[in-house]
Design a binder for these strands. Structure first.
Lengths: 189, 189
DNA sequence: ACCTGAACACCGTTCAAGT
DNA sequence: ACCTGAACACCGTTCAAGT
């Protein structure tokens, strides 16, 4: 049963995401991932140093994808609308790529302490928003405004995907949009 | 070694919180909790149906405590300041009771799906904020405003305790306070 | 009533071995 | 190179047994 896949690494990441989506990122099991991909328990160690590295690789994918979505969303607009578009896209990514988002930002995820590159990925996203905020309001403290905007979107994303407020995807988008508009109005007053 | 404690249940909950604080809520282990409390692996089953029930009991404590703190914080003020005090208290609770907060709201926590009473506890807190928002602005859609306020605080709480923005406790409080002020200003404009 | 110890089916990881 | 299977120290949970 050698050479099961052209790309076992890909199959393992897909299985990781499928299990994270189904039962939560915390319950993902190396052995079950391997079984889903049709290989033995130890085959993943050919492609990843350990379980954490496998989860980090899936997170990495998510950061790349989110970055692409945020860059695309912020292209055609003027500064204020760009800040709002970035925030709304963040929430929409969380909703449409729940397992990626959970792996990237969930508690006990490898994104935080373990892997080095992932922290840099998160900082890149922050810089993206920070730049837009700076363009929008050059005078104000852009850093603290960015943190406040991020917090609003991060909270909306988490509450929605963990189903803590009974929010639908459409509701989360429109609620984020109007909340950001209000927050920006308040900040610039 | 019978009758080790007057209150083994209490000792198990303390051990649960200590481990959740030390290594994250997801890594809490029934066997290690029992070991920390000085009893055998199976002793916890005298006090809790299973591991989930033990984590849920610790969450329950957190909900009771947070409710007390929020009620106390909202007593002496007029409506707008009360809304802000509720939100700031939420963030301060998360920072000062990190392990409780993680158990209450973390992904894969028993607070969400598993136990019935905990969902009601979370709804109670929401009602607390909803009532304050309604008093502050009777005309507006209080429900969606409450969701937006909650999201802001929830995001700030999570980003702070998961150390995703390098925020200190004091910074989180003041940043939450000014963000809420801006959001409320924007919402009432 | 309250606790223990052995047992079962899991888990991550290591290692010798196969092709 | 790539994968397997046995082994180790863990895990949650059950169950018969002890006081």
């Amino acid at each position: 049963m050698a050479y099961h896949h052209g790309d076992l690494r890909r199959a393992l990441l897909d299985a990781t995401l499928a299990l994270a989506d189904e039962k939560g990122a915390a319950t993902v099991t190396l052995r079950e991932v391997a079984g889903l991909a049709g290989v033995s328990q130890t085959a993943p160690y050919r492609h990843f140093a350990d379980k954490t590295a496998m989860l980090a690789a899936a997170s990495e994918e998510g950061f790349v994808l989110l970055r692409e979505m945020m860059i695309e969303a912020s292209l055609p607009t003027e500064p204020r609308a760009r800040v709002i578009a970035l925030g709304v896209t963040y929430v929409e990514f969380a909703v449409s790529h729940r397992s990626h988002f959970r792996l990237m930002f969930g508690q006990g995820s490898p994104a935080k302490a373990t892997q080095k590159g992932l922290q840099a990925r998160a900082r890149d996203l922050f810089q993206l928003v920070l730049a837009a905020v700076t363009e929008w309001q050059p005078r104000r403290d852009a850093r603290s405004a960015t943190i406040q905007i991020w917090a609003l979107c991060h909270g909306m994303a988490n509450l929605t995907i963990e189903r803590q407020l009974g929010m639908t995807a459409a509701l989360a988008s429109s609620s984020t949009r109007s909340a950001l508009a209000a927050l920006l109005d308040g900040l610039s007053a």
